[in-house]
Design a protein around this nucleic acid. Sequence first.
DNA 1: ACGCACCTACCGATCGGTCGGTAGCCTTAC
DNA 2: GTAAGGCTACCGACCGATCGGTAGGTGCGT
Lengths: 204, 204
Amino acid sequence: MTIADTAKSKATQEGQTRNEEIFQTAAELMVQRGYAGTSMGDLAKAVGMTKAGLYHHISSKQDMLLQILLHAMEELESTVIEPAKRIADPEERLREMIRLHVRGLFDHGLETALLFPERRHLEPAQQQVVGQRIQSYRGLIRETLRELADEGKLQDLDINITSSHILQTIAGIARWYRKDAGVTEAQLVEQTVNFNLFAILKVS
Amino acid sequence: MTIADTAKSKATQEGQTRNEEIFQTAAELMVQRGYAGTSMGDLAKAVGMTKAGLYHHISSKQDMLLQILLHAMEELESTVIEPAKRIADPEERLREMIRLHVRGLFDHGLETALLFPERRHLEPAQQQVVGQRIQSYRGLIRETLRELADEGKLQDLDINITSSHILQTIAGIARWYRKDAGVTEAQLVEQTVNFNLFAILKVS
DNA sequence: ACGCACCTACCGATCGGTCGGTAGCCTTAC
DNA sequence: GTAAGGCTACCGACCGATCGGTAGGTGCGT
């Protein structure tokens, strides 16, 4: 072991740090029951510890929410925003953003984004940090819509309102989708892309 | 006063029963902070009473949530579902449903519908009652989409998924809309109707 | 005199969080 | 090889505050 070996190497059965297990479990519980509705005792039990043991890993419930939100935002940026930014054509970019975002709901825990409204439980300064990063995503969608409008491809729609509608159809999936119903992941991606592009693109 | 006079006549400044004031204030608080995040002490203070005084009017927090959800559902049925059912043409019916629903977000407190996921805090039997009535609304949308498909007017879209997308664009408005921004109510109604109809209607 | 609307004072339970410990592993010294 | 020391990961027991809810009373309009 050298100074270079800074990695925390303790892993659980699935190659997850105990810390990661805690944050992920917390995110799942909070998505189901909300921030206020999830007690630290419940969370401790869910990861197989006592509350005191849990507090060895985290500093407070509030800080845990902040970490969860920041991590979700980073995941969104690296798996959706950055790849999309590299696409020049606005129509193809929007198509890819929706596709990547919906896929991310399954592959990377992007459903955690449902917790963003819970940022009201954070300190104002922290709320602002999280809020700004969300706005930058909305900004990318608006910019893409504006480029489409410049090309004459956009329907007669308000860009601000439309960007919200698009985001709601995507984020909304995590609210209503239950995998027991007869809807496959691939279907959901395709249908959501089509729904939104049918809505905004002028017929050529 | 006769037996026929069953109306509770105590009214506050705006012609509201104390009971109505409590339920409406509770609904507003819960939409902002969630069911678990809203304490009965907060609610009591918001209506200018003590907690004990509040409990003179209601039986329990849980029952209050049930009443709020049932009332929201009745409002939705009388102002959106019933009027829409009387329209024969499916395209016009869908258009009117969206228009009435979005308008209702402002005129009748239809934003209360954001509390429907909170029905998980109710007893299973009550959850089912509320859940069924929501499904009947979704059923009407699906039926309307199916009629459009029969007429050959529907895009190549899955009816189940599309009905969810439509509902999310409408309900989602109550999540992101803040009246301070430069968006008028009329704009919002028009844009939401257009967005969804652009999405689902085949170009003729 | 009666009941409605409301109060003060309180209940047991649960909340987020902390305290002082301890079992087991890893390193270092001899 | 092994004992000492330290560190990580946890635990039982507990804290003050707040939770949903209640008991018993007061004042007021009819």
